[in-house]
């Protein structure tokens, strides 16, 4: 990972420390009122026009004061958030979305490089909500599906990507949709215990299922003719598509997984800010640009999700 352990601890510790100082200032005499003063005046001093626009209590002001937007992203998901071993940088669709948000927070020009203003933190799926709730990250952009259960825990942005389950088949295959697999002589490969596997039963009940621990085994099994198709979320399949040009994705999305950016419920005003930025990205062409950059191989950029 690009960031060292020390910077991580420092930045993670910063937000709670500032909150603590502010709290002390309110209740006791000797706790420096000056620390509150610096907290409110510094952003205006360092970054000129944009920062003054944020109310001092807002989460955006906090980020500006810190100087960096801390984002939790996947580092093992091809195309969306993947650590590039050559550059030691995490790259992908999610990272580019975060950089656009950072540009807006820090008032950077559209052409500017937001990399120095973003601190990326690799997260696993299980870490996403706890890290937000601890205040260790400002935002999560890590292929996270918006669900009602999660909405009770964190705030979500508008949908920034609509993922869905699809089919990966050999180039020569005549299969065009999930219904083509709904026959006893067809085998679909997926992962043991995945929701994808349960969706196969729902959409193609007659199909045989071959289930392994992971999808890499599925792709190998399909190349050997043990299965006619591999089925799971299209973004995972797109990663395999990139590695093996003898495959193709067919059938569109037969389920929908709306991805949202996650924010802590305590982040004042941040959800509205991020939402307006996501909306702008979708309408001014930046969303399509990012889509084409990372997912262009899968097909032309669709209309952004509503």
């Amino acid at each position: 990972m690009a960031l060292s352990r020390r910077t991580l601890i420092q930045t993670a510790g910063m937000a709670p420390a500032a909150a603590l100082l502010a709290a002390c200032g309110g209740t006791t005499q000797n706790a420096s009122p000056s620390s509150i003063a610096t907290a409110t005046t510094r952003p205006a001093g360092t970054t000129a026009p944009q920062a003054t626009a944020f109310p001092a209590t807002s989460h955006m002001a906090k980020i500006v004061q810190r100087g960096k937007l801390i984002a939790g992203v996947k580092q093992d998901q091809p195309l969306f958030g993947l650590l590039n071993p050559r550059t030691n940088q995490i790259e992908g669709f999610d990272i580019d979305i975060v950089k656009e948000i950072a540009k807006a927070v820090f008032g950077l020009a559209a052409s500017a490089d937001a990399t120095p203003r973003v601190e990326l933190r690799g997260v696993t799926s299980a870490q996403r909500i706890p890290l937000l709730q601890e205040g260790a990250v400002d935002i999560i952009a890590a292929t996270m599906t918006i669900t009602d259960a999660r909405k009770l825990e964190i705030d979500f942005s508008e949908i920034y990507y609509m993922a869905g389950q699809s089919l990966l088949v050999p180039k020569a295959s005549t299969i065009t949709k999930i219904q083509d697999m709904d026959k006893a002589d067809q085998t679909v490969c997926s992962a043991q215990g995945s929701t994808s596997e349960q969706n196969i039963t729902k959409f193609a009940p007659a199909a045989q299922k071959l289930l392994f621990a992971g999808y890499a085994e599925c792709v190998t099994a399909m190349q050997q003719g043990r299965a006619q198709a591999v089925s799971t979320d299209d973004i995972i399949l797109a990663g395999f598509l990139e590695q093996d040009p003898n495959l193709k994705m067919v059938g569109g999305q037969f389920t929908q997984e709306p991805y949202g950016l996650g924010m802590a419920k305590t982040s004042m005003g941040f959800q509205e800010f991020v939402n307006s930025e996501v909306r702008k990205m979708k309408t001014d062409g930046r969303w399509k640009q990012i889509y084409t950059k990372w997912l262009g191989k899968v097909g032309p950029a669709p209309e952004p999700p509503k």
Partner: peptide, 15 residues
Amino acid sequence: AVQDVMYNGNILNSR
């Protein structure tokens, strides 16, 4: 992917 008792246990657990 042999559907032995371990495999069926895994499937049942995930459901």
